[in-house]
Amino acid sequence: MISAWLWSVALATGVLLIIRLWLILPRNSAATKRSARRHSDHCSLAVFLGSGGHTSEALLLLSGLDFSRYSPRTYIVSCGDNLSERKAIALESLKPVESPTQNPNYSVVTIPRARYVHQSLLTTPLTAAQSFLGAISLITFKSLFSASPGPEVLILNGPGTCFVLCAAVYLNRLLGLPSPQMIYVESFARVGSLSLSGRLLRPLVDRFVVQWPQLLEDGKRGECRGWLV
């Protein structure tokens, strides 16, 4: 009797969760567009630097932005990825700031990797869980407990770890917490087939951008504005 009761509660919770999840998917939620901002407004931004070519492309995307507008900036790097951190700092030192007295307004934070190169599939759930906790502390806890609100936009371009960041954003949305708009930009290297992170994130992110138009020939969601890097 009690177990039947527990089962129906679990089932009802599960169904509600699925409905909630379905409702917050980008294609179903009406209010994904932000309200109009004034030219001088600020917008906080976070970007995941996925090492190697991912980092280079992400930083190239950022290099075209108005840094006095997109401020403060948070660079999320995988633990131990010192090269990406150095490249982010290098970009920050190159960009002009609005006034000479103003310091660049950015921070570099780290997150455990979801999966290491050549890591066995058996241990991947463990590292992915660690990584998810890291993403939650960055995205969810920050919006709950921190005085400074979390980022308003999160730029992702792979690889694996960006999926756990997306999952943390969805946790915020499930709980009705503020959450960043997610923009996924597929790599310039992807001409005829999407990357694994691209395929995973395509239905989940708010904007899905590719750099070669043939990737959209399947008619699913996404946009192409030519080469962005």
Partner: peptide, 15 residues
């Protein structure tokens, strides 16, 4: 061409 992504993001964020 940095303006392509800049325009996309500005548009998305309501600028």
């Amino acid at each position: 061409n940095g303006s392509r992504f800049r325009e996309l993001l500005d548009e998305e964020m309501g600028f």
